[in-house]
Amino acid sequence: MRTFDYARADTPEAAVAGFAQTGTRFIAGGTNLLDLMKLQIETPTRLVDISRLPLADIEEREDGGLTIGALVPNSDLAADKRVIAKYEMLSRALLAGASGQLRNKATTGGNLLQRTRCNYFYDTAAPCNKRAPGTGCAAIGGFNRIMAVLGTSDHCIASHPSDMAVAMRALDATLVTLRAEGGQRRIPIAEFHLPPGDTPHIETVLQPGELITHIELPPPPAGRQIYRKVRDRASYAFALVSVAGAVSVEDGRIASATLAFGGLGVMPWRDPAVERALIGQAPGSPAFEAAADALLAPAKGHGSNDFKIPLARRTLISCLRHLTGTSL
């Protein structure tokens, strides 16, 4: 049997202190980690259970934002009245993910760290640089319908599967962590996830033993909000393409825009060029097409996922129409 030690932490400090050994992992809801352990894709020798830490509250901040504990279940976050009122895209993104049962277990911190759904990552007989660095990438030249078209490298084309993280990216969330050696760190979500490059097994800037304790949301962006998830079935399917965003219009011009994308990128994707193409422009097809051009200029299909490029264009334009109240 593959045995591992299990310890339940009572305080965040105790949790990070438990990381002295290598091969240690935190376990929160376990909805991702346990699946991966059963298939021996992750093989920790020690689990530190953080699920009972007092990090399950949502608090209002003085600046009008929210501080969300890393252990707030996805269901609770989606149903929070303040989230629904001010961060509609976040609530919608959460409800678009997984299933009711999974959302009850899944945590805010765990969701940000969930690993790719690349089919070959799950198949220990297949080459995969993310799972087994240096073995190659079976998705390139294979079945890659769900893989990324933005930010890929010759070493890995896996997409980031989270819905919640896409909304967090559009909302400019900041992660607050407790480091293994003690002391807090604040990581803007823009700097949190890493592109695969030639080290696809390194997915975030989190250091071993570093615990996410909170996620801070700044005050909500101006304008209407949206989370649109395009998927193969009505529920319980990862995004082919998703768009999280808010756009405000003043005096017939787009005054502000924040847009992030799921299903397309190797990480929750946001490209300032998209927003630049919109701000100051009159809402309408020329600006929307320009935004789509900006988003998709660097996109590269790998065969079975080529369709994501036109699908993303259509979805983005439709979302922008909705956000600005512009009809065809």
Partner: peptide
């Protein structure tokens, strides 16, 4: 996967069947 003869989507997360919502 016509390179190996393996089914690529061999679990119920990726081999889709209708859910209640469908």
């Amino acid at each position: 996967d016509t390179r190996t003869g393996a089914y690529v989507n061999r679990d119920l997360a990726e081999y889709h069947v209708p859910t209640n919502a469908d």
